[in-house]
């Protein structure tokens, strides 16, 4: 067993510097690496580029880095939940690259899987395709999209072991598995770090080879953005 376990979030984020490109898992506030984000705020690294489907809300998730003016550029598919984001973007303080969600996921997966680029139909004929190579296959037009290149990927999983094997829960899985191994260093925080051998090899979602560092996170808030319920009759 190759040991990936580090003792705390400080060790996990060792080497994160200004101007780096960071990937962060999560959809909305679901499955975001809460501990890593808190440490990025504490480290106060500046001018970072963040690849994340969303930008958090004003006072949680990546919104915390935005409030702190740490982000130079965001690469996201949907940023509608964050007023500070919209303000910084419209005023030009923040550079934004809006990317179709499936393309965003595939740019992660391509980086993970060693593909330099891929063709997708998404965005053809729109401003997303401007300046990009296009090509026809079987009568349909496609846009060439390059894989991401990132320094760190911050991933949140449900359970994991010191070998770096991961299991995700519910829809908190989202982009997290696609970002494992898609950056130079993949840092995973888990709700529960279990003994090696405890996870059934048949049920592992991401094998440890894609992970460099793993630690057990603390104090998960797991904030709900839209609490929708029905009443029992």
């Amino acid at each position: 067993m190759i040991n990936k376990k580090v003792n705390n979030v400080q060790q996990a984020l060792h080497g994160v510097k200004d101007h780096m490109t960071l990937m962060l898992g999560g959809f909305g506030l679901c499955g975001i690496p809460e501990n890593a984000i808190a440490e990025l705020v504490r480290l106060n690294v500046k001018n970072v580029t963040c690849i994340s489907n969303n930008a958090g809300v004003d006072d949680f998730g990546l919104g915390l880095l935005l409030q702190n003016k740490q982000i130079k550029k965001m690469i996201s598919s949907y940023v509608g939940e964050n007023d500070e984001f919209e303000r910084q973007m419209l005023s030009g303080e923040l550079e934004v690259e809006l990317t179709p969600q499936g393309t965003l996921a595939e740019k992660c997966r391509a980086a993970q899987a060693g593909f330099p680029a891929f063709y997708t139909p998404a965005g053809f004929g729109t401003e997303v395709a401007e300046g990009k190579e296009t090509r026809e296959f079987d009568g349909k037009m496609y846009v060439l999209e390059p894989a991401f290149k990132a320094d760190f990927a911050f991933v949140k999983a449900w359970k994991g072991d010191a070998a770096g094997n991961l299991v995700f829960k519910g829809t908190s899985r989202n982009f997290n598995p696609n970002m494992c191994g898609a950056a130079v260093i993949t840092v995973v925080e888990v709700e529960e770090l279990v003994e090696v051998g405890e996870l059934d090899p048949n049920h592992i979602h991401i094998p440890g080879i894609f992970v460099q560092r793993i630690f057990e996170g603390a104090n998960y808030e797991k904030r709900i953005e839209q609490r929708t319920v029905r009443q029992k009759q």
Binding site: C30, E81, G170, K222, R223, V229, R230, K232
Partner: peptide, 18 residues
Amino acid sequence: FPFDGEEDADIINAGKQT
């Protein structure tokens, strides 16, 4: 939607609803 009190932050739809 889940019954009141049974919502799970890890199970949402694309609209971020439980």
